[in-house]
Design a protein around this nucleic acid. Structure first.
Lengths: 215, 215
DNA sequence: AACAATATAGTGGTTAACCACTATTGTCCT
DNA sequence: AGGACAATAGTGGTTAACCACTATATTGTT
């Protein structure tokens, strides 16, 4: 059994490290690399790997975003999330969105190898050291409950779009990257605006920038 | 000329990446690795390398601590500090303590190579992208010096306009409120954009929202 | 007197976002 | 089988922001 694996991390040197480790595992074929979340998403669609090893914090889309979106589309790729966050919130979020592996970035090389093998054979794998580091989730600061409630009525696709808007990515670019029509994204934007009860030019951009850190 | 280099990082996978990059540079001999600051210090004393590539955040001693301590003892090793910190304070501290190279962890592989070559030949090397990252980091909390300098080249009228833009007031509304023509405000906006070195649709809005609290 | 900076105002054009619709497909739930 | 929802895609139109110019009056400085 040969597993197709792709990796994604926005830190080139760290990605070199992952590449070195992954490509030396027997039974694994490294079939692609990405430097941000959108690239990773496209790479997964085009190569349909068995396993995707994704950094959590990447530009444009997080590893968890990518995981969620791909699994939503009923693909069979299994996800391993790498992160330096010792925050329980991220761990819970990743597992809830369907990740099969969760590793801290200071994990040993052997752990990454074990994780890929375990996840490859269909099992879940969580860094043994993670329990020690899990701390209370203290994040969601200035997200007013009312706004939060509205935001949570958005569908996964709509949330992705808000996120991309917050990174100054235009409707056309979003459309290109998600392989859908510009009209579709405009439709989503209109639905989002309606749900969030906002109106006027750039109102979605303003919302997205305002709550950027909390999305 | 063959440079002896040691590397130190507490993240095994990242260290694998550094090892891969460093050991493939012609004229460089990788002669040791360490996983924390104390190990790095001992390794430097025992191998007396030409260059030490040190992570800033390591257990026991930081990369800067090691740099300071070794240089205090009049050794000839030159130091390159790797970090994910986008905070000017760390950069200033490292340079003050005698580091010859300073690289962000999301630098390209080529940058690490250039850095080692430059530092090897006695020059200093600072990541060209570091200014951008300093700007990005300080966005929410502080007013980066570089941006502040640009902002202060604006005339009083221009500053007023930036402020009004940050409050979601349109060009037409600003014109009405200041009893001047819409064209005048558009002209001011163009001048502001030029002075702040920004371009593209909504870029002024984005700038204004980003620095809203500090204007 | 010459110059630079500032504020004013204009023309003419491009583009991205938004608005208001309609419409089809597929899934999930009852 | 029917209904709700989600995602897809389209047409046609409006508007705000931006871009690239030119131009004039005022003020302050060298």
């Amino acid at each position: 059994m040969l597993y197709k694996v792709i990796i994604a991390d926005d830190h080139p040197v760290f990605r070199t490290g992952i590449r070195e480790v992954v490509s030396n595992i027997a039974g694994v074929e490294l079939c692609g690399e990405a430097g941000d979340g959108l690239e990773a998403y496209q790479l997964i669609l085009s190569t349909l790997p068995d396993i995707a090893v994704l950094d959590l914090d990447m530009p444009k889309l997080t590893g968890i975003d990518v995981c969620e979106k791909v699994l939503n589309e009923k693909h069979n790729t299994r996800f391993i999330i790498l992160t330096m966050h010792k925050d329980r919130h991220f761990f819970d979020d990743a597992m809830h969105k369907g990740a099969m592996g969760y590793l801290l970035k200071d994990s040993a090389v052997d752990e990454l190898v074990s994780c890929i093998k375990e996840v490859g054979s269909g099992k879940k794998y969580v860094s043994p050291t993670i329990e020690n580091y899990l701390t209370e989730y203290t994040a969601s600061e200035h997200f007013p409950e009312s706004v939060k409630a509205l935001y949570n009525t958005l569908t996964p696709t709509e949330k992705i779009i808000v996120k991309l808007v917050s990174q100054s990515i235009t409707t056309q670019e979003i459309a290109d990257n998600l392989f859908v029509s510009k009209n579709t994204i405009e439709n989503h934007r209109a639905n989002i605006a309606r749900k969030l009860k906002i109106e006027g030019k750039n109102s979605l951009l303003k919302f997205a920038l305002l709550y950027k850190k909390l999305l």
